[in-house]
């Protein structure tokens, strides 16, 4: 076990336990914030695992999750907009922490990879991950408030 896999284990263990606790209890708004946190935890972990196993092709997994994770949160935000309108979640501290962790992981993995085409893929993944995370948080805070019945 090397440092990359150790970092991934700690991130997965702590982050996903917190996400599970959040998603399985409490009001709907808290559950949705926790669901959004899942992507922000799992995607950097997959990048760390790809680096730890020395398998650059595993980065595709992180890329896919960075793309589709926020889409999943948007699905929930849109189709549960009626229920969300009552209690608006405010978790910008958590969102920015997650974005900071993602950025740190992407920078560390990029530094280990060195300038190449693989690094471009890592940077695209990072941008999609952080951008998607911020937009999904915005969507949870009333992004679909005007949507009714559609």
């Amino acid at each position: 076990m090397n440092a990359w896999i150790l970092a991934a284990t700690i991130l997965l263990g702590a982050g996903l336990t917190a996400a599970l606790w959040g998603v399985a209890s409490g009001p709907l708004s808290r559950r949705m914030v926790a669901q959004n946190l899942t992507t922000a935890v799992a995607c950097p972990s997959l990048l760390l695992l790809a680096q730890g196993y020395h398998r650059p092709s595993y980065v595709d997994l992180a890329l896919l999750l960075a793309l589709l994770g926020p889409v999943g949160t948007l699905v929930f935000a849109r189709l549960l907009a009626d229920e969300l309108a009552v209690a608006t979640p405010a978790a910008w501290g958590l969102t920015w922490t997650a974005a900071g962790v993602s950025a740190a992981v992407v920078v560390a993995v990029c530094a280990a990879t060195g300038p190449s085409r693989a690094m471009v893929k890592l940077l695209v993944t990072g941008v999609l991950l952080i951008g998607g995370n911020l937009v999904a948080s915005r969507a949870l805070q009333g992004g679909f408030r005007q949507v009714r019945g559609g």
Binding site: L12, L16, A19, L20, V23, A24, L28, R31, M32, A34, Q35, T38, T39, A42, S45, L46, L49, Y58, L61, L65, G69, G72, F76
Partner: peptide, 18 residues
């Protein structure tokens, strides 16, 4: 709410396969 937990479980399963 079950669908929310299920989406989390999907991600955890993907990490397990990885």
């Amino acid at each position: 709410r079950q669908a929310l937990v299920l989406s989390l479980q999907g991600v955890v399963l993907a990490v397990l396969f990885t």
